[in-house]
Write a protein that binds this DNA or RNA. Structure first.
Length: 836
RNA sequence: GCCCCUGUGUCCCAACUGGCAGAGGAAGCCGCCUUAAAAGCGGCCAGGUGCGGGUUCGAGUCCCGCCGGGGGCACCA
């Protein structure tokens, strides 16, 4: 370490080691429940997505923690009681795969990594309240995950059904819709996802589709726009109507004379009902096989076989030719009485809407393509002025005048047409306006080991029986290595002794459910557990949840824009309806951090462009890395590490630190009477910093701090000098501002300034409003929008005075050049624009 | 195809409710300090805001249309 006397730099490593124990001793970030319960202090809840413990922390963690810490420390400075907890999302596949590879238990890998990450986080100096640490894989935690599952079950929000589900052949488990990427691959491992017919557990997310959608309006301004947009698209609200069609003739089957159930379709264009020329049902839905005539059945079965063979990748190609098969049966158009042939095809999806559509080929391109392929009639019912789709094979979807549409004929506006059609359907009892959602229920069961077991017992006599809550947790059986190898069924099934149990209801022999829960269940409520992480009687303390919640700022990655955020919102609404919490949205504000990339590319092993966090920390120190990440760009933008200069950050920190050594006035000296210009700069910076932190413009906060450092340097070297009390005031403000980004340097400065640790415990500098008032400002005088003069004027100059002053200015007179002044715009005290 | 965000000096980025385009940093160049280098200190350099219209006394900012980049949804009826 450099000699303190003439030091121009400090030893980064030594400083990091020096402050760690001091902070541990002072523990300045422990959240005080009583302070918020009693109302003694206002609360703020700062939360950052907790990590999965895979190896050590990486650049992405470093970024999000650095950003998060600015707001958390700021709130503390402002006198809030801050809840700033951290934990681990510690169930999940990587640990299981590592256990199989190394013939160990997943817990070994998991808890070892947690310790590594914990040590790294401590060193990284984030203001977490470590007394609230939790791990979702602890039985004490997943006991309550299971409890919440049972609450869902009790409320009808958890149920089992058989259907075609997403199957990852790599991970050998089912996946939720949200875990399948747009290209049909597994979100986790990248394998091409296939379909399997399985009985699985679901959470009824669709029950809250409307509310999940509507509440996005309230989040519009406090959540980052792209995430709100992504959720809107995912929920996929669309307005339209249900229309019911009678089916002609008897059903061929075991019961003689059985009449087919009418078919209901969902359509967004009930106004085009008169243009329907056929119907299509999803080929793989039960509806198709119940409707098909004996004569056509072999054709349907052959077709369905073909469809099943087609991979998801093929299905995703939207320009694929239309295929299908006639079912031999007809539906009756409820408004025209027309007979419509019913077809089965794979372009209609079994699990959207009702799995059946009315086809209006003239005004829907997909239907038109199908009509063309099978030579079905096309009838235009909306004259949009475009060429007839029957000739062009281009469907027209715009506004127009209705034709061939009975009572709608002559109506010339789409909205009116839709309203009228819905009225007609409602009157006849054959349809009604409705809203349909794209959102599906959340498939939550997984055929893997390292997750929370589903607390259900299957009994021959009693069926699905919930495990009584006093028997929770249902702990995982001890399985290791090869026992965990995925084989398409749950590894838990192999633990015969564990599976065999007695029925809680009848006491007879029964077996445990062998699936575990999706790890997104664990993370859907962890923010609630943090309010009372050690509570043994409930998942969380209701009074504390009311006091601390909801989260005031949540920061995380875009990859969870739909998945985790949607699930957590769903849980919150269910818990509210169950009376356990009082708020409806868990995250009042949401900010997503960009990615840290390198040389324009995502960091990856295969590209060989990874930047190792540990190496960066070793080379530049924690503070410089944090500063670099915060200063780089607005939080939500990507950071290209190749464009960054951690060395420059370190240089700045040393520069700031050096200021502290140049302060020669005594601790506690009054800044009154100190250099006014520097004092004004200091107080302006503080005021501006408040707005910048509160609007999450942390990069600008750093820039302003740099300016203050520059101004102070100048004051010391060529201004008022280091003994001026204004210099002390400025440097103390620098230390406080800097402590939100570079806590070690700030602490070191604070000590050098003669203070007791810790700078984290002081309060925010009070702004002297009088110092914000400027004695004179520069008013710009424009003639025809071009700057012609600058005037030094009093900030409270009147409009007439300023105008007079401006018009009297020689340069302005010259610019006007005798022309007629048509108008003078005066914006006191900064601008005058003379229009000639 | 539909929806959302975004485009400012060589690079990363500032610019409050429309009001002097430039704060901060990086890179580069030039000095001072030094036996020298590093560090430090001081200074210099640069674009008219993707393109085209419009509104306005005045547009980086608002509106319309393109182009580029990023993201979400997608045979979703």
């Amino acid at each position: 370490m450099s000699d303190e006397q003439d030091a121009t730099t400090y030893d980064v490593r030594a400083v990091e080691e020096k402050w760690q124990p001091v902070w541990d001793r002072l523990d300045p970030f422990r959240a005080d429940d009583d302070a918020v319960l009693s109302g003694a202090r206002e609360k703020k809840y700062a939360l950052t997505m907790f990590p999965y413990p895979s190896g050590d922390l990486h650049m992405g963690h470093a970024e999000v923690f650095a950003l998060h810490d600015v707001i958390a420390r700021y709130w503390r400075f402002r006198g809030y009681e801050v809840l700033n907890p951290m934990g681990w999302d510690s169930f999940g596949l990587p640990a299981e795969n590592a256990a199989i590879r190394n013939d160990t238990h997943p817990a070994t890998y998991t808890y070892a990594n947690i310790e590594t990450q914990y040590e790294s986080m401590k060193r990284y100096g984030v203001s977490f309240d470590w007394s609230r640490r939790l791990h979702t894989s602890d039985p004490e935690y997943y006991r309550w995950t299971q409890w919440l599952f049972l609450l869902m079950h009790e409320r009808g929000m958890a149920y089992r059904k058989n259907s075609a589900v997403n199957w990852c052949p790599q991970d050998q488990t089912v996946l939720a819709n949200e875990q399948v990427l747009a290209d049909g691959t597994c979100e986790r491992c990248g394998a091409v996802v296939t379909k399997r017919e399985l009985t699985q557990w679901y959470f009824r997310t669709t029950a809250y589709a409307q509310e999940l959608y509507d509440c996005l309006d309230d989040l519009q301004d406090s959540w980052i726009a792209k995430v709100v947009n992504a959720q809107r698209n995912w929920i996929g609200r669309s307005e339209g109507a249900h229309v019911t069609f009678e089916i002609e003739g008897e059903i061929e089957g075991e019961i003689e004379g059985e009449v087919a159930e009418p078919i209901t379709v969902f359509t967004t264009r009930p106004d085009t009902l008169w243009g329907a020329t056929f119907m299509v049902v999803a080929a793989d839905a039960a509806l198709a096989s119940s409707l098909v005539t004996d004569e056509q059945r072999p054709a349907l079965e052959a077709y369905v076989d073909d469809v099943r063979k087609a991979s998801d990748i093929d299905r995703l190609a939207t320009d694929r030719p239309k295929t299908g098969v006639f079912l031999g049966r007809y539906a009756i158009n409820p408004v025209s009485g027309e007979r419509l042939p019913i077809w089965a095809a794979d372009y209609v999806l079994a699990d959207y809407g009702t799995g059946a559509i009315m086809a209006v080929p003239a005004h829907d391109q997909r239907d038109l393509d199908f009509a063309k392929a099978f030579d079905l009639p096309v009838r235009m019912v909306v004259d949009t002025g475009e060429p007839d789709p029957q000739e062009t094979f281009v469907a027209t979807t715009g506004d127009g005048t209705y034709v061939n549409s009975g009572p709608l004929d002559g109506v010339s506006d789409k909205a009116a047409g839709i309203r009228a059609a819905i009225d007609i359907l409602a009157e006849r009892g054959t349809g009604s306006g409705t809203v349909n959602f794209r959102l599906r229920d959340w498939l939550l069961s997984r055929q893997r080991y390292w997750g929370a077991p589903i607390p259900i017992v299957h009994c021959e006599a009693c069926g699905e029986v919930p495990v009584p809550t006093d028997q929770l947790p249902v702990e995982l059986p001890e399985l290791t290595g090869a026992d965990l190898r995925p084989q398409g069924t749950s590894p838990l099934g192999a633990a015969a002794e564990w599976v065999a149990t007695t029925c809680p209801s009848c006491g007879g022999a029964a077996s445990r459910d062998t699936d575990t829960m999706d790890t997104f269940v664990d993370s859907s409520w962890y923010f609630l557990r943090f309010v009372s992480p050690n509570l043994e009687t409930a998942p969380f303390d209701e009074a504390l949840a009311r006091a601390w919640g909801p989260i005031d700022l949540y920061i995380g990655g875009d990859e969870h824009a739909v998945l985790h955020l949607l699930y957590a919102r769903f849980f919150t609404k269910v818990l509210r309806d169950a009376g356990l919490i009082t708020w409806s949205e868990p995250f009042s504000a949401y900010l997503s951090q960009g990615k840290v990339i390198n040389n324009g590319r995502k960091m990856s092993k295969s590209l060989g462009n990874g930047v190792n966090l540990g190496e960066q920390l070793a080379e530049f120190g924690v503070d410089a890395v944090r500063l670099t990440l915060v200063f780089a760009s607005p939080p939500e933008d990507n950071i290209d590490w190749a464009d960054m200069s951690p060395g420059g950050s370190l240089k700045f920190l040393q520069r700031a630190w050096r200021l502290a050594g140049d302060v020669t006035s005594e601790v506690g000296v009054s800044p009154e009477g100190g250099d006014t210009a520097l004092r004004q700069a200091t107080h302006r910076t503080v005021r501006e910093a408040e707005g910048l932190v509160e609007s999450y413009r942390f990069n600008v906060l750093v820039a302003r701090t740099m300016e203050l450092v520059n101004a102070t340097r100048k004051a010391i070297d060529s201004g008022c000098g280091g003994e001026d009390p204004a210099v002390r005031e400025a440097v103390e403000v620098v230390a406080i501002l800097l402590s939100m980004v570079a806590p070690y340097t700030a602490e070191e400065m604070w000590e050098r300034l003669g203070h007791e640790p810790s700078v984290a415990q002081v309060s925010w500098p009070e702004v002297d409003e009088a110092l914000l008032v400027e004695d004179s400002v520069t008013a710009v005088v424009q003639v025809k929008g071009k700057v012609k003069a600058r005037l030094e004027v009093s900030p409270d100059i009147s409009e007439t005075d300023l105008e007079a002053l401006a018009l009297a200015d020689a340069a302005v007179v010259r610019a006007i050049d005798g022309a007629t002044v048509r108008k003078v715009i005066v914006r006191t005290p900064k601008l005058v624009n003379v229009v000639v």
